[in-house]
Design a binder for these strands. Structure first.
Lengths: 343, 343
DNA sequence: GTTTAAACTTTACGCGTGTAAAATAAATTA
DNA sequence: TAATTTATTTTACACGCGTAAAGTTTAAAC
């Protein structure tokens, strides 16, 4: 074993018998050196513990190998899951993911972008907060650094957007609920922060119109990211008041639905499809916990495999420079109906 | 507005009328320069957009201002919540947190530490996987870089450990369950990865012995981090087999309990304290979703406010006074009983 | 107003790597 | 084997900042 200490690339060049510039070339692209020298270098790498100082490496580079990944709230398992998927894809592509959470706050979001700026990332994947975002700051950032948005769209910000087609997915579940029972009432926040929430609102209205049914909204106060609590508190209030325009409730997202289910349980309202049931409750997103609610939550699963893959693809193309500046690309993926016991 | 482009510290020194070394000093500690020059610099900072190149800054520094934060699985809302708390504390202390998730795998854990190594962090806060960890690699890392462990302990690894006192907390809930009904059976994995699981197992046995009751274990197969699924599948199997030694079930953690609750619901077993109930189910951790299960989950809340605060405190002290080698500190915090409807 | 300590400026070097240019060596082709 | 292409070596400079040393200014203390 080597006792010798390798302090820098020059030391390593010495022990491997290769010149420093070639070593440098190797680390930037192992395939760019001759096979025989590559073998020599890799043999030396096994004998000696050396890795380039990433600070020195990145000091002069215009663009690093870092890709920023900003999500609105890591405490939300839904985003944690997406983040994990995307992280994997970034690593696969030979880049270094930097995961940051905005913790539901626009200031933190800007702070995240700011801190990314000083890291000089090759590109950034951003799931913005939405309405709450400081749009000007985000837009400015996206002008400076290749940025792709996902999950929530901000008009004109970033080079591309990938998300779910709420019109399709809400249409799908409204149709299902109507067909299998009665048209749903729509349970949502009065003033959501997420642009998807607005699209879902509109999608519900459109779907009900298609079915020639009157749209009913149950809009509740509440802000922040504590959706379960809001769903629970307001659900309880509504159930106790007994003022439901329909016994089928479509919640704007699963987290609201999870809270609502807890409220229903507490109010002894039986949730499900059966004749003996008092309520049907459905959500949207296929939250990781949706299958463990009581009963399991009928919902829409977003295709975040595709959303993640295409987002990463887009940022990589931007980085490579294959960007045919043919305008901002907006791609929406269909959701799938996931039928469980709750509706 | 300034049209001039500030490329480096020298440019910025020029426009601010202060010499570069003093500017450098300012960025390392704004309080170390005279008030009048500080004002000058900060005025210039408002007029011109300049921030030191983070790579150049860290290239020569022995210790950076980075603190690594490694958690076993960010998809678990419990760790997401702890991570967020700790992140905040690190920022407050003027350091830069780098959050990494091991995604439940030991290889990823080592990869995380490896990638942290190249970042030359001032210190690292690590919640290890536990049994599954490649302990030698982790120990080697902790020898090179100031490391504090939290949540799960690895004997002798790192400079300190902060976690929960499972003996106390399990004792507390076993006592409560026994007092308010009957002694619980302990539901857990046959081969857990988490050291806390083993402590809880032992704690349960000890508590039952104190109560002069026979200990009953329900141990199920299952690996990985899909605790809800395991709790659900195995819970269903057990309930359908009708082979329960007690109608009170203490689960080794909340996620198992959440799955078990779903199984109970599906099997039409009424969970709760009442006379008319078939089962009582309790957990441990006070998972963010524990309050929204049906019924709400009786559990133990870990004091991760204290765990986080003390962990950060410890790593900061290690960073400041590098000579503090008074032995490895192990600190355990008491859990609190959280009574909800399930038990 | 003098003394003095603290803060600042100037100058200069070092960090570890990227990279360009010219010279040389090795592999490939004819 | 010679000619050609391709890869490597040598040399040298650049990047942006930390930091040390020596000299100079500033502000506080007397």
């Amino acid at each position: 074993m080597a006792v010798q200490k390798i302090k820098n690339m020059e030391d390593f060049a010495a022990v491997s018998g290769i010149s420093r510039p070639t070593i440098s070339k190797y680390f930037n692209d192992p395939g760019s050196v001759r096979q025989t020298t590559r073998v020599k270098i890799e043999e030396a790498l096994e004998r000696f513990d050396y890795r380039p100082n990433i600070y020195a490496v990145n000091q002069n580079r215009r663009r690093t190998k870092n890709i920023g990944l900003v999500v609105p709230n890591l405490t939300d398992p839904f985003f944690a899951a997406i983040a994990r998927t995307i992280e994997g894809l970034i690593v696969e592509a030979g880049f270094n993911p930097l995961l940051l959470s905005s913790h539901g706050g626009p200031d933190q979001e800007v702070a995240n972008l700011d801190s990314l700026r000083s890291i000089k990332p090759a590109g950034v994947l951003l799931a913005p907060l939405g309405r709450a975002s400081h749009v000007d700051d985000v837009a400015e950032f996206a002008n400076q650094i290749p940025t792709v948005l996902f999950d929530a769209n901000l008009d004109g910000v970033g080079e591309a957007f990938f998300g779910s087609d709420n019109m399709q997915s809400i249409g799908l579940i409204v149709e299902y609920l109507s067909r299998s029972g009665e048209p749903p009432v729509f349970f949502e926040l009065e003033n959501p922060i997420n642009p998807n929430a607005f699209r879902r609102r509109a999608a519900y209205a459109a779907a009900m119109e298609r079915l020639a049914q009157p749209a009913h909204f149950m809009r509740v106060e509440g802000s922040g990211w504590d959706f379960e609590e809001i769903g629970y508190q307001e659900g309880k209030r509504i159930l106790q008041a007994g003022a439901l325009p329909s016994r089928t409730i479509l919640c704007s997202n699963d987290r609201l639905a999870i809270g609502f289910l807890a409220a229903a349980f507490e109010c002894d309202a039986k949730v499900g499809l059966g004749e003996d049931c008092d309520l049907r409750i459905a959500g949207h997103d296929d939250h990781p916990f949706a299958r463990y609610t009581c009963p399991g939550l009928t919902t829409i699963s977003q295709d975040y495999g595709s959303i993640g893959a295409r987002s990463v693809d887009a940022i990589l193309k931007l980085i490579e420079g294959e960007t045919d500046k043919s305008g901002r690309e907006v791609t929406l993926f269909d959701g799938k109906l996931v039928m469980r016991g709750s509706a």
